[in-house]
């Protein structure tokens, strides 16, 4: 039984803004199948009393004080942008939002 369909791979590609060719969809579906199969092995040993883990260190409550630090120089950050105007980042227009 396959764990991931070609349609799901296509949807993931769309969400990740990846333009995949038809042949690539087949190829990645196959590769992802192997990854999912390997990961599923973990499920065989994880019992209901084991919580899903998201952090390896076990640390909690690490905070910083509410203190203002120096920001980057504006010229510096805008220098690495593909396009700028009026000290702002210039991006392709996205219609009918906000």
């Amino acid at each position: 039984m396959s764990r991931i369909t070609r349609e799901e791979v296509a949807n993931l590609a769309r969400l990740a803004r990846l333009d995949l060719a038809e042949a690539e969809l087949d190829e990645y579906a196959k590769q992802l199948e192997i990854i999912l199969e390997s990961v599923a092995k973990v499920g065989e040993v994880a019992t209901a009393d084991v919580k899903p883990m998201s952090h390896a260190t076990g640390l909690v409550n690490i905070f910083r004080e509410d203190k203002v630090e120096t920001s980057l120089d504006r010229e510096e950050i805008l220098k690495s942008a593909p396009a700028t105007e009026d000290f702002r980042f210039r991006v392709p227009r996205i219609l009918d939002e906000e």
């Binding site: 203190k67 203002v68 980042f89």
Partner: peptide
């Protein structure tokens, strides 16, 4: 006074892109 995950200031109406890191 500072942003949620970094130390940049949060002043309303500041010059564009002067509060970034």
């Amino acid at each position: 006074k500072s942003k949620m995950f970094c130390g940049c200031a949060t002043d309303f109406g500041a010059e564009p892109n002067t509060q970034t890191c």
